[in-house]
Amino acid sequence: MSALLAFENVAASYNGAIAALHGVSLEVRAGDFAALLGANGAGKTTLLKAVSNLLPAAGGRITSGRILFDGRDVTSHSPAEHIRRGLVPVLEGRRCFKSLTIEENLVAGAVGRGFGRGQVTRGLEVVYALFPRLKERRRVAAGLTSGGEQQMAAIGRGLMAAPRLFVLDEPSMGLAPLVVAEIFEALSRLNREMGMTLLVAEQNSSIALKHAHHATVIENGRSTLSGAAADLAARDDIRDRYLGGKVAALA
């Protein structure tokens, strides 16, 4: 089985000067739940922006190597086209539309894919079943909801576009452990029950390794290690060296 998403020795920089990635290679197969691990500033966010071809809008570009989604170079499609091909990102820091209600946020996700009324209704059912809390809060402006609810709304907004490959940037950021667990539980369900392929970037390696099948570690813009999540989680040296073992052990 060939990879749904493949990075081939990708390097990227911002404003033509600041190099953020030096050489990242990894593969995500259809049906996989893959994790991208690394400390703050390791290059995870840059990598995920590059996947959806969002780097140009952030003042960056891929300088060498390439990223293939479905066998096609990702730079040959606009972010909007990627959504229509089923490659859907959830940005770092949630980035909900704060002045819009939770439900309007969700509908925006479906509008972005060009879905009609029927698909919007079905999408809302799926999202509300996954995150019942969003249903209660659906008429509230997103900016007035809690961080966890905003993260759920951001994930829900992505789900409304019916992703084939769902790419999430640090869904645990700034959230209480219980909420993080709930969110990763939901992601696992999407993977298990709907066969959705996931790529999740995380600093919180213990929760990511608990749910993911495979993981790749990036360090200073390079992929340094890759393997089955269970194997990586079992190796104490890796946890200590790359993944903030002390913190992980406490969690």
């Binding site: 959806s52 969002l54 809008a57 952030a58 972010p79 909007a80 990627h82 959504i83 229509r84 859907v88 990102p89 940005l91 980035r95 909900c96 539309f97 704060k98 002045s99 819009l100 925006a108 996700g109 509008v111 972005g112 894919r113 060009g114 907004r157 576009a161």
Partner: peptide
């Protein structure tokens, strides 16, 4: 509200 997020969501 958030132009970058709007682009990421696929709004044209």
């Amino acid at each position: 509200d958030d132009t970058f997020a709007a682009i990421a969501v696929g709004l044209r």
